[in-house]
Design a protein around this nucleic acid. Structure first.
Length: 585
RNA sequence: GCGGUCGUAGUCUAGUUUGGCAGGACAUCAGCCUCCCACGCUGACGACCCGGGUUCAAAUCCCGGCGACCGCACCA
C-alpha cells in the first residue's frame, strides 16, 4: 500500500491486509461468500500452524499431555450424554408484527416469577402456554408472537443412508477426549493426573457471525482435558508459576457492576479462594505467558469470571481469558472451566461403560467391618423360592442397622420379610482396602485457535513511517528470512540464489525476491512480517559477507555467509538478539 | 433472523440523479533504470455481486436473491 487509507479501524485494516497478502479471507467468494467461514492462505496457514506448534510445545512437549485427533461427526447418543442436545439450543419466538426475535425463555422469565433454571427447563409447548396464558406481548411493539421454535446451534446430519442414524458436527472437541477416556487412561499408564488435548475443527451454527475470524461457524478449537484425583487436587508445578501475576475480573466484582481488576499472584489467587483449583490457576498463568509470547502484552489481557448463569451446563467455575482488541473491546480467546466429574459420570451412565479409576493406597488400609452372613440352611425352608432374593437383599443392607434392630426388637423387617436372629450371622470381619474407586475430575483449558491467530495479527500490526509492518514474534512469523540481491545484475542474483537454496536446505523458511527496488522489497517483506532480510551486495562478491536487516528497527549488521545457519538458528531459538548477528553498519 | 446503509479490476474510486463505447490511481506482472528502505519511464493483465424484468439499449430504472458494514438476541 503506497498511501495510508483514511484511518480505517484496525480490524478493517488487518482484514484487508490479510486478504491482500494471503493470510485469510471469506470462503466461497466466487459464489458471493458465506458468513462464518474463512479460508487461510499460505501465510495464514503457516502462522496458524506456528501458533498451534507453540501450544504443542507448551502442553505436549513440556507437560506431557497426550494429543489425539478424533472425528468431527459424532453420533447423537454422545451429545445426549454430554448434555449438548438439551442445552445447545435456544427457544426463540418472533413477533408477528415487527418481526423482532426473542429468546422465549427470557421473555417468560421476565413476566412470570420463575428462576432462570426453571425457565430453561420449560418445553416448547409449556413456553407457548406460558406466553399465551400470561398474555406476553412483544416488548418492542406490543405485537403477538408466532410459534416457539428451537434453534439448535449444532449442525445436524445423518450417518450413512439411514435417516434415523443422527449425527452432529461437534461444537467442541472435548467429547472426543471423554469418550476415549479408558484408552487414554491406559496410555497414561493408569496414573493421575494426566491430560489429553486435541486441536481440531468444531462446528457451531451461529445465528449471525459477523466478526471475521472472531466468530466462525467452523473453527479450530484446542481442548485440553486435564484429569485429576479430586482428593489430590494439588499441582506439582505450582511452585514454578506461583509468583506469576494474574489479572482477574471476579464474579463478585461484576455483580457490583464494576470492571475493577483484582491483580494477584497465582499463590494469592488460590489462598484467597478466587480460583478454586490449583491446576486451573496454573493453566491460567501458562496462558498469560503464551499470549505474551504471541505478542499480546499482559496489560491487554484479563481473566473474567463467568457468572453462574453465564456458565456452560457442565462447569462449576469458569474464567474466560480476554484480550483487548481495538474494534470489539474485550474478546474471549481462551477459557478455563472446572468440569468436575460431569462428563465422565454422564458417559458412564449413558454408555454403561465403567469410567471409574482405581487408585491403590500407598499402604493398604485394614478395616474392621460388620458383615451380614445369611444362613441359607435357615432361610431356605422359610422363604423357599424367595430365599435367594432375601439373601441378596440382606447382603446389601447396612449391617449396623440390622444388628441394632435384632437386638432391640428381636427381628428386622427387610421389606415384607421378617428376619429373625437365627437367620443371619453377624460377624466382625477384617477387610483390607487396597485403594479406592472414583471418577476423576477435570479442569479444561480451551483455546480458540482462530481467535489467537487474529489477536496475534492485530497485535503485530504496526505503522512505521507510513508503512505497514507485522511485528510477529520471531518464532511465529510465517516466513523467517528474505533473501535479496541488492540489484538484479552484475552477478548479484547468481550469488543470492544459491544462498537462498542453502538456507532452505538448512531448514529455514526463506523467500527469494529480486523484483523492484531494494526498498520496495523490504517494504513487501515487512508487510507480511518477515523478521530478517539478507541482502547480497557488491561486498559479498569480494568477502562472502551479507547484510542482515531487522524488520522492526530497519537496522543492519554484516555477517559471513558460512556463519548464517548457526547464527539464524540461535536467533530464531531466542538464544541471541539481532545485534549479536554481526557487526553493526 | 429484523431494521438502516451499501455492493464498479487485488485495493481505493469516477460514472448511477438525467439509461447511450466503463475512466483514473495504487498494487501485481514483463522490461528499462537503480550500490540499501514503496523513485522514475514503457508496456501488459484486470471490474459493473448473482438472477429475472422494463427498454432499440441497463453499471444506471424495477423485482428477487446473495454478501458486507452499523445497531438488537447466541458464543471459543
Amino acid at each position: 500500500m503506497a498511501k495510508e487509507p483514511r484511518c480505517p479501524d484496525k480490524f478493517t485494516a488487518v482484514n484487508e491486509l490479510a486478504r491482500r497478502r494471503g493470510f485469510f479471507w471469506q470462503s466461497y467468494e466466487i459464489y458471493g461468500g458465506v458468513s462464518g467461514f474463512a479460508t487461510y492462505g499460505s501465510l495464514g496457514a503457516r502462522l496458524k500452524q506456528n501458533i498451534e506448534r507453540k501450544l504443542r510445545e507448551l502442553f505436549v512437549n513440556k507437560l506431557g499431555i497426550l494429543e489425539i485427533e478424533s472425528p468431527v461427526i459424532t453420533p447423537e447418543r454422545v451429545f445426549e450424554a454430554s448434555g449438548h442436545i438439551e442445552h445447545f439450543k435456544e427457544p426463540m419466538v418472533g413477533c408477528l408484527k415487527c418481526k423482532k426475535r426473542f429468546r422465549a425463555d427470557h421473555l417468560v422469565q421476565g413476566c412470570v416469577k420463575i428462576s432462570e433454571a426453571e425457565a430453561e427447563k420449560l418445553t416448547l409447548t409449556e413456553l407457548k402456554e406460558m406466553i399465551e396464558k400470561n398474555e406476553i406481548h412483544c416488548p418492542e411493539c406490543g405485537g403477538t408472537f408466532d410459534e416457539v421454535k428451537q434453534f439448535l446451534t449444532m449442525f445436524k446430519t445423518t450417518i450413512g443412508p439411514y435417516s434415523d442414524a443422527v449425527g452432529y458436527g461437534r461444537p467442541e472437541a472435548a467429547q472426543g477426549i471423554f469418550v476415549e477416556f479408558k484408552r487414554l487412561y491406559g496410555m497414561a499408564r493408569e496414573k493421575l493426573p494426566f491430560g489429553a488435548m486435541q486441536i481440531g475443527r468444531a462446528l457451531r451454527n451461529e445465528i449471525s457471525p459477523r466478526q471475521g475470524l472472531l466468530r466462525l461457524r467452523e473453527f479450530t478449537i484446542v481442548d485440553l482435558e486435564f484429569f485429576f484425583d479430586p482428593e489430590e487436587p494439588d499441582c506439582y508445578m505450582l511452585t514454578d508459576v506461583e509468583n506469576e501475576r494474574l489479572r482477574l475480573l471476579l464474579a463478585e466484582t461484576r455483580l457490583k457492576n464494576s470492571e475493577d481488576l483484582t491483580e494477584v499472584t497465582v499463590k494469592e489467587a488460590l489462598k484467597k479462594g478466587y480460583i478454586k483449583l490449583e491446576w486451573q490457576a496454573v493453566f491460567m498463568a501458562l496462558a498469560t505467558k503464551l499470549l505474551n509470547d504471541l505478542g499480546v502484552p499482559a496489560e491487554k489481557q484479563r481473566f473474567i469470571e463467568k457468572l453462574p448463569w453465564e456458565r456452560a451446563h457442565y462447569s462449576l467455575q469458569t474464567f474466560d481469558q480476554e484480550v483487548l482488541v481495538e474494534r470489539w473491546g474485550w474478546v474471549e480467546v481462551t477459557a478455563y472451566a472446572c468440569r468436575s466429574d460431569y462428563d465422565l459420570k454422564r458417559h458412564t451412565e449413558f454408555s454403561g461403560q465403567d469410567m471409574y479409576v482405581f487408585k491403590e493406597y500407598e499402604k493398604s488400609v485394614e478395616k474392621e467391618q460388620l458383615v451380614i452372613k445369611p444362613i441359607m440352611s435357615k432361610l431356605g425352608p422359610i422363604f423357599k423360592k424367595e430365599a435367594a432374593e432375601v439373601a441378596e437383599m440382606l447382603s446389601k443392607t447396612d449391617a449396623k442397622e440390622v444388628e441394632a434392630s435384632l437386638k432391640n426388637s428381636g427381628h428386622y423387617m427387610l421389606g415384607k420379610y421378617k428376619i429373625l436372629p437365627e437367620h443371619v450371622g453377624i460377624q466382625r470381619e477384617k477387610i483390607v482396602e487396597r485403594g479406592r474407586r472414583f471418577i476423576p475430575h477435570v479442569v479444561e483449558p480451551t483455546f480458540g485457535s482462530d481467535r489467537l491467530f487474529y489477536v496475534a495479527l492485530e497485535y503485530a500490526y504496526r505503522v512505521k513511517d507510513d508503512r505497514v509492518l507485522l511485528s510477529f514474534p520471531r518464532d511465529i512469523a510465517p516466513v523467517q528470512v528474505g533473501v535479496y540481491p541488492l540489484l538484479s545484475k552484475d552477478g548479484l542474483p547468481e550469488k543470492a540464489l544459491p544462498l537462498h537454496k542453502m538456507l532452505v536446505d538448512e531448514g529455514f523458511v526463506a523467500e527469494y525476491d529480486e523484483a523492484g527496488s531494494i526498498g520496495r522489497r523490504y517494504a513487501r517483506a515487512d508487510e507480511v512480517g518477515i523478521p530478517l532480510g539478507i541482502t547480497v551486495d557488491y561486498d559479498t562478491l569480494n568477502d562472502g559477507t551479507v547484510t542482515i536487516r531487522d524488520r522492526d528497527t530497519w537496522k543492519q549488521v554484516r555477517s559471513r555467509i558460512d556463519e548464517l545457519p548457526e547464527l539464524l538458528r540461535k536467533f530464531f531459538g531466542w538464544k541471541i538478539n539481532f545485534e549479536d548477528l554481526g557487526n553493526p553498519i
